[in-house]
Design a protein around this nucleic acid. Sequence first.
DNA 1: CAGCAGGGGGCGA
DNA 2: CGCCCCCTGCTGC
Length: 385
Amino acid sequence: MMALERHQTREAFPLVLNQFDSQASSYNDNSFVASQWSSGQPVTTDLFLEMNGCYNAMEGMEELLPTPPSSWHPGNPIYEAASRSLAPVDEVAYMRLFSHQQQHPQIKEHLPPESLSFDPPPRAIRAVTPDPTAMLASRFQDRGIITTRFDQYNEMDFAIHTISFAGRYDQGDSFPLHIDPIGLNVNGQLEFFGAMKEGDEPGFKPLSPAASSSQIQPLARSPQQDAIQKIYDYIEAHPNDPIPASYISRELFEFRNGLGWCLMGDCAVGRAAHKDGPLSKTPRFWGRLNHLYDHIRGVHFNHRPFQCSLSPTCQMSFVRKDDLACHKFRRHRYQRFPCGMCDNVYTLQDNLKLHIQCKHVDTLISMHLSGVLSAPATRVHNPEG
DNA sequence: CAGCAGGGGGCGA
DNA sequence: CGCCCCCTGCTGC
C-alpha cells in the first residue's frame, strides 16, 4: 500500500464505494467501504457506517477488496458524503493512523451469539472504568425473547473510538434482527446514543458532542446534533446564564397531548425500550415543558449557572435558581426580609423592623387604625427577591 | 441534612 | 409559552 496523503489520493485516484455484504463475517447491512483505486488496487480504504441518515467514517480498514465494485457511483448521496469525508483532514494525525494501520492491520469480525444469554465478546480497548460494555449490558439486559448482544468493532489502539452495537436476536437465531449502534467510546469516555423516537425506523441519532468531534465526523449531521451543538455554543458564550428555552428545540424532546418526554441519551434509550417491548428502563414523562427544559439543562448538559457567592469557600452551583436559593438558606442561613411597603430588602429581621419604624411609622398607624394591619411579609426562601 | 428533581400556581409577554 | 416561585418527595451521606 502506498503511503499517500489524503488529498493526493483524492485527487489522483477514483473513489469507489461498495456495500459491505451481510454475511456473518460482515459488519452490518448499513456499512460500506470507500476505497480509492489505482491500477486495480486500493490505495486507501475507509469503512463507513450509515446510521439513521448519518455516515460515520471509521478510518483505516486495511482489508483490501478483491475487485473494484460498482454498486455506488458519483451522484449517489452516500458517494458524495463519503467523497467529502476524504477531503484533506489533519494530515499529521492521518499519517500516524496510516502508519499504525500498516503495522497493525485490523479487521473485526461480526461474532454471532453462541447462546441467547448476554455474553459480550472479548474486548481489547483501553481501560475504562466502569466497563462500557457492562454499562450497556445493564441497560438492555431485559428484552424478553429478544437478546441483546454488544459487538465491538474497529478497536484501534491509536484511535479514538470504539462503537458498541446492540444487536437483537430472536430465539435460536444466529443473526441479528437488526443492529443499533447505541454507544460510543471516545478516548475512554463513554457516550450513549438515543435509540429512536416513535415512528422512527430502527437506527440511532447521535446525541453527544463527541459524535461531532473532528475524529468522528458524521458526514451528514443530524438536526439533533445541530441543536446540541448550538446549546454547547451558547453555554460557552454565556456560562453564567441558564440555557434559554428557545435553544431547547424539538429535536431534543417531544410534547404531545399534554405529556412530554426527553429524546436525549439515556432517556431516549428508555423510551425506545418502552416502545420495543419489555421494559428495561421506564421512560420518564413530564407534564410541563419547563420541567422538561430543566431536566435537559441539568441532566443532559449539566449546566449549572447559579453559583453560590455567599462564602469564598462554597463552590456550589445549581441548575435552578430556586435550588441555589434553598442552598443559601439551608447552608448559609441566608435569607432576605423585604419591606412590604417599599422596595427595600434586608438580610436581618431587626434591620427590617428598624426600617419600618423609621420610614413607615405613619403608614403603620393608619393601617392599624383602619384594621388592615398585618405583619410584614417575610420570605424564607427566594433570597434573590 | 443537603442536593436533586418533579408538581403546580401564577404572572407577563 | 417561558419563567418564577414554592412545595414536596426521594436519595445519599
